[in-house]
């Protein structure tokens, strides 16, 4: 029985992996075609202001060196095989391997996103539970109103407001930069890092609660109206004990799944928050790459963010497979 269970899960992951691989190849191809057709001249983007000093002959040499004179398919294949070997090329802005930059930036973003993910998940869940338990009261209406309003709030504007209040007016935090300007990275202390982290995390979290809260509220209302809660009440359970025994476990699982499935929005939030707070993460790198025509970096980031979203979806599915007994236990009869 356990063997078949393990095999079932293995098969599931394998199928997901295959699907992911096909999607990833397609995304690589489409993205590659898109950036190749962009009006930005990669050579000019690389050389920048020195363009006037470069003659047509030199230009051709560079083009040849990069393989820019080859047909698009050939270019794609050579780029693709390099990617498979783990070589994402060299970033034009940073003049360093793209994989190195992504690795470094990802660590920064990961801290930011994990903190915001946890905070928004926990607070959103509590808000949803409170709203459902107090359904129809002013507390419920407030929470609902807040969530609907948040869903219409531009993330970057929320970032600006927080910046105005906490950094400019109160002066509690520096106005930007992931690390203090002019300090060598070895000298950056943990405290500095955390200090620069708080405002972006706050921005993403304030907006991130809406989804989980509304979903949890609806789910808990359904659970409270269910037959099994009615029966639990008939057996004398009530109040917090009732919620703890029957509400929590039936509501937490979908909430966790929802949070994992929201990695795409989390990434989007991080892009905007990082831009507002000049936080050196993946999001800021994406914007820079887009603005300054850094093709290798942009392609690398597209691939990476796709994998990131996929991991979130996989975790969402896995959490169901591992936590829900209906999926976990093989029917014994």
């Amino acid at each position: 029985m356990y063997k078949s269970k393990g095999r079932k899960l293995g098969l599931f992951i394998l199928m997901k992996g295959v699907r992911m691989a096909t999607l990833l190849v397609a995304i690589c191809f489409i993205s590659f075609l898109l950036v190749k057709n962009s009006p930005i001249d990669p050579i000019q983007a690389y050389i920048g202001a020195d363009m006037l000093k470069v003659g047509p002959e030199q230009r051709e040499k560079i083009a040849e060196y990069w393989g820019l004179d080859q047909p698009v398919m050939v270019q794609f294949l050579s780029w693709g095989s390099a990617v498979l070997k783990g070589d994402l090329g060299t970033s034009m802005i940073f003049r360093r391997p793209v994989s190195e930059i992504i690795g470094e930036r990802f660590l920064n973003s990961l801290v930011l996103m994990i903190a915001a993910w946890l905070l928004s998940g926990v607070i959103g869940f509590i808000m949803g539970v409170v709203a459902a338990m107090k359904k129809g009261t002013w507390i419920d209406r407030m929470i609902k109103w807040y969530c609907f309003t948040l869903a219409s709030t531009p993330t970057f504007w929320m970032g600006l407001l927080i910046l105005i209040v906490f950094a400019v007016w109160l002066g509690w935090f520096p106005v930007g930069m992931g690390v203090p300007a002019g300090v060598l990275s070895e000298n950056v202390t943990m405290v500095d890092r955390i200090q620069h982290l708080i405002l972006p995390v706050l921005t993403i979290s304030i907006l991130g609660v809406a989804n989980v809260a509304l979903h949890t509220r609806q789910k808990l209302i359904d659970v409270l109206a269910s037959d099994y809660v009615l029966f639990a009440r008939a057996r004398g359970e009530q109040g917090f004990v009732l919620f703890w025994r029957h509400g929590l476990r039936n509501v937490a699982l979908p909430a966790i799944t929802l949070q994992f499935a929201a990695f795409s929005e989390l990434f989007g939030g991080a892009v905007l928050a990082e831009q507002v707070f000049s936080y050196p993460g993946l999001g800021q790198a994406t914007v820079e790459a887009g603005l300054r025509g850094d093709v290798p970096l942009l392609l690398g980031l597209v691939i990476f963010s796709t994998i990131f979203v996929f991991v979130g979806n996989l975790l969402a599915d896995l959490s169901y497979h591992l936590l829900d007994p209906r999926m976990r236990e093989v029917r014994k009869l």
Binding site: D227, Y228, L230, F231, A232, H246, R249, N250, D324, P325
Partner: peptide
């Protein structure tokens, strides 16, 4: 059986 908590 619907009156039993599905996750307990």
């Amino acid at each position: 059986v619907n009156f039993l908590d599905p996750l307990m």
